[in-house]
Design a binder for these strands. Structure first.
Lengths: 224, 224
DNA sequence: CGTTCACTTCGGCGCCGGCCGAAGCATGAC
DNA sequence: GTCATGCTTCGGCCGGCGCCGAAGTGAACG
């Protein structure tokens, strides 16, 4: 009884095409503004606002205010898994088409906007986190003093600006957070500079060079 | 776009309380008649019929006609997993409360109506299937000639009657079919007779005796 | 063959919920 | 201050869907 009511309540949230569009747009772990989601769902902002409110109330989305924008993202990896579960049933072409799109290279290392994602991105976040260089919460993060020194020395001191300093960004292939925000961007930028990673044509996957392999191992203790 | 439409279509099916009740009632893998499901959903049979039709159209349920009854069951383990995924998000108490209710003993061996389920039930079905004693399809099964001889010798010749001879029954803990129908019932009955397994008070879990351990290994090649 | 029972189909009622236009708060830019 | 922008709230419209009563199939039983 109570179980099924919870199922119905949650599923009803997914059951509307507009809301499903929004969730699908967020499945890669990114955070989008209400307006962007309205566009993705093909509805007006005021309609979208109502939907987003319901999704947030239902615990499916988490909102983060930032200036006059409001960023929405999936509240937890569980939500992503649930969506994959529903897709697996709904279509003949299950999760694979989504989760593996682009293949192994994308899962290993790729860019996510201006920062790094994939196994490499997650590993970097883990390494910095374990060493106490950054402290990541569910809805924000900060760089410790020690971390600041480390980043300075590494040559990845974040550029000044109003963008969020350091924030976790849910990784769609690993379903764990990686580093975004100014810190994530600076880190990625420096890795490109050092020649540790290189962009490739027509894909967001990045190639890790021999120097990169050594560098990541030496500086971050990561075996890619 | 297409992805999210599929999500919405499938989720909309779960989004109605009556349908959610029905699915929840079927989550243990059992097959129920339309009337029983109507009762479970607290609606009249004609309303239930409509819901069941939609669920079947959506590929969530499979129907099996049998005399003037019509048995509905989850179309595939994927559906059960999806439901668990939705429950995991919907409530503070996730899958555990459902899938592990009753603990380890129930997962190992239990009765399901009049036949055996749990790891033991699944293992028995596997063993008989591998040895060519029974052939299990998705919506029915049959006993081979060789299997008939084996069952006779074992003392588990199915009682005559109109009940389905041999049918797979989805196991909620293992998410794989075990043997139900007359064959499953006869098999379970004989195991009780032999003292291989024993009922326990206040639970559907059954206890496997020392003789049972040996017997299952010897006769079926099962290491419990 | 008539009765009963399980289930489905049909028809109409009523409500819930999605949708948008307009107006109301905020925040940030000038 | 004024203006622009992003988002939310309010109100009313309307379509869709769940609901049940009544009538229609198909199967089992005497």
């Amino acid at each position: 009884m109570s179980d099924s009511n919870r199922i119905a309540a949650t599923a009803a949230l997914l059951g509307d095409p507009a809301r499903a569009n929004m969730l699908a747009a967020l499945m890669d772990g990114s955070a989008l503004t209400a307006k962007e989601l309205a566009y993705a769902a093909h509805v007006t902002p005021q309609t979208a606002s109502g939907h987003l409110g319901k999704l947030a109330d239902g615990g499916l989305l988490a909102a983060e205010k930032q200036g006059r924008h409001r960023y929405y993202r999936l509240a937890s990896p569980l939500v992503g898994q649930m969506l994959e579960g529903v897709m697996a049933v709904g279509g003949p072409e299950p999760t694979r088409a989504i989760a593996w799109r682009g293949g192994e290279a994308l899962r290993t290392a790729r860019t996510c906007y201006d920062h790094l994602a994939g196994r490499l991105g997650v590993a970097l976040a883990d390494a910095l986190s374990e060493r106490g260089h950054v402290a990541l919460g569910t809805d924000g993060g900060e760089v410790t003093e020690q971390g600041q020194r480390f980043l300075d020395e590494f040559g990845a001191a974040p550029a000044p600006g109003r963008r969020v300093f350091c924030r976790p960004c849910l990784d769609w292939s690993e379903r764990r957070p990686h580093l975004a925000g100014r810190v994530g961007a600076a880190l990625a930028c420096r890795c490109f500079e050092l020649g540790w990673i290189a962009r490739q044509r027509d894909t967001r996957a990045v190639k890790i060079s021999q120097e990169g392999l050594e560098g990541f191992r030496e500086k971050f203790g990561i075996a890619v």
